[in-house]
């Protein structure tokens, strides 16, 4: 699985939710999702959806605002717990 695939899957998680006030397709991987309307309440739902989609558990140390601030940041966090691209 390539990193870009991980990012694509993160985008798929965001797609079709009301977590953001704009379509994720219009945002770059490093775009600030909080500026796009992501609330703290939605952050928790996003986190649970990521855990479901990637079949992982995010440890408490990653449960902070920055982890969910962009598609890129979420991919970094997932990489940290072993969700990495295959060569």
């Amino acid at each position: 699985m390539s990193v870009s695939t991980v990012r694509a899957r993160i985008r798929a998680v965001l797609k079709g939710t009301d977590y953001l006030q704009v379509d994720i397709d219009g945002l770059a991987d490093d775009a600030d999702l909080y500026a796009a309307g992501l609330s703290s309440h939605a952050t928790v739902n996003l986190m649970l959806a990521l855990e479901e989609a990637f079949d992982v558990e995010l440890p408490d140390r990653l449960l902070r605002r920055r982890t969910f601030s962009s598609v890129y940041a979420m991919a970094e966090a997932l990489a940290e717990i072993g969700v990495k691209e295959a060569a």
Binding site: S40, H41, V44, M47, L48, L58, D60, L63
Partner: peptide, 13 residues
């Protein structure tokens, strides 16, 4: 209600 939402994401210490 906010705390309850956060607790969904956390595990007991």
């Amino acid at each position: 209600a906010n705390t309850g939402t956060l607790l969904m994401a956390l595990r007991e210490d």
